[in-house]
Structure formats: structure tokens, C-alpha cells
Design a protein around this nucleic acid. Structure first.
Lengths: 116, 116
DNA sequence: GACTTAATTTAGAGATAGCTTAAATAAGAT
DNA sequence: ATCTTATTTAAGCTATCTCTAAATTAAGTC
């Protein structure tokens, strides 16, 4: 029996890339495999657990793969899984730099408001 | 000066079609123009205001157009606005019938739980 | 074993999304 | 002007999302 073209439920994939932070992470592991730590260090305006949770969601939705080696976990995008969303994703990346800056500012504001 | 191809911010469009209810509505106005009332009558497991709010979001995101005539408002999909998301949307429609049934059941359960 | 490093899981807070009911607006009919 | 029909706006509720801080797991090192 021939393996079916693994087609990740598009609903899950859509949900996954609807979030700017996850798009940012996905971009980091698009061309190269990276450890969770590298990723978390790069995305430095958010805590490690936050990154870890987003990695988990990306993995569950099938958009990235995980490889464990020793105490490290390496992640990498699974481009096949994107299907027609790849084009969309590329378009969104063009808008995201500014978007992420906004997010950071907003975060800083609410932090200040509640007096951290 | 030539009018730029009106390209709706992809972020907004993405957000709009990320919701099953809105995909359902978008499908209703895909081939034919329909009044808000017709739409709300078809999507009968949700209140009219809920439909109205979703129509507004779809309009604001540029995915549908509104035409007023007398007391009625007619809506219709603006397919141009979808761009690369059209392919995605078609794929999602194939999954949505079951999805919407689930939503309705879930709604019914929580209704029952809080004793409506 | 005890310690360190890498990463995740848990618990809980704050913000947001989508819904409901009730009230308001707008256009047309009597 | 009053009434009716079509639709939206307003206010409030609940579920869900994304984050943080603290606790936990897992693998290797001394």
C-alpha cells in the first residue's frame, strides 16, 4: 500500500501560522535545524517556556519536526506540510518585522501599566 | 496613475478565514449576493447579531462587499481579495461540514451544562 | 549519588474572540 | 406621526489563547 501524501489537517496548520510569534519561529527553522535554546535565545522578547509551548503547537500541527540528541532537541520546518499555505506564509513574513515590533511595544506598555 | 491591485492586508484576511463560522458565511456569498437576513436565516444555529458581527469583520478585512438597497444590505464575496488564500479556503471548505456540526454539538453541551 | 545544563510541564493571570440578549437605528408602509 | 421590518450596536459573559514564574523531567558530568 502506498503511503498517502501526508497531509496535515489544514485547519491546524492555519491556526498555527495565524500567530506572528509562531511565524517568527517557523522562519528561524525554515532553512536550518536549530535547538530550542538557540531559538529561545533569538526570540528574546519572550520567555523560554513561551517558545517551548509554541514549538509544541507547531510540532503538533505538523509544521516542524523534532530530533532529540542528548539533552538537546533540534527543530526544523517540514515544508511539505505547509501545502498551499507556504505562499501565504511567505507573503506574511514580508509584513511581520513591523508587526513583531508592535507586539513588543504593546507588551512593554502593559508591563509598565501593571508596574513590573 | 494606475490603481494598485488592491491587496488586502494578508494578516487580516488570514484572521478572517481562520474562523469556521466566517468561512461558512463566506461560502454563502461566494457565488451569489445575499442579504444579511438570508444569511442569518441559513446559519440558523447562531443569533442574528453574531452573523452581523462576522459580516462586519469580513467586510473590514476586505473579503466581502456591501451594497445597501432600501432597508436591506446585500453582501457578496470579493474573490480578488483572497489572493493566495483562495486555494487554502477551498481546501478548508472540504473539512468544514463536520467541523460545524462539532461546533453546534459543543455549543449544545455547554448550554445544557449551564442549564439554559 | 549529587550537580549542571537543556528543555518541558504546570498553574495561574491577563487579554481577546465570539457569543447572547436588549436596545437602537434606518427605511419604508399605513 | 406611528408602526413594522431589517439590521446593527452595546453590554456583558465565557472559553480560549499566550504569556510568566515555579516546578519537573531528562541526559550527561564529576
Amino acid at each position: 500500500m502506498q503511503a498517502a501524501t501526508r497531509n496535515v489537517p489544514i485547519e491546524a496548520a492555519m491556526n498555527a501560522i495565524a500567530n506572528p510569534r509562531r511565524r517568527q519561529i517557523l522562519r528561524l527553522v525554515w532553512d536550518a535545524e536549530r535547538s530550542a535554546g538557540e531559538i529561545a535565545a533569538t526570540v528574546d522578547d519572550v520567555s523560554w517556556p513561551a517558545v517551548s509551548q509554541n514549538l509544541r503547537l507547531l510540532k503538533d500541527s505538523g509544521l516542524i519536526t523534532e530530533r532529540r540528541q542528548g539533552t538537546r532537541r533540534y527543530y526544523r520546518a517540514d515544508r511539505r506540510a505547509l501545502g498551499p499555505l507556504e505562499v501565504v506564509l511567505r507573503q506574511m513574513w514580508m509584513h511581520d518585522l513591523g508587526r513583531l515590533r508592535d507586539l513588543a511595544e504593546q507588551e512593554a506598555r502593559s508591563r509598565k501599566k501593571r508596574g513590573d
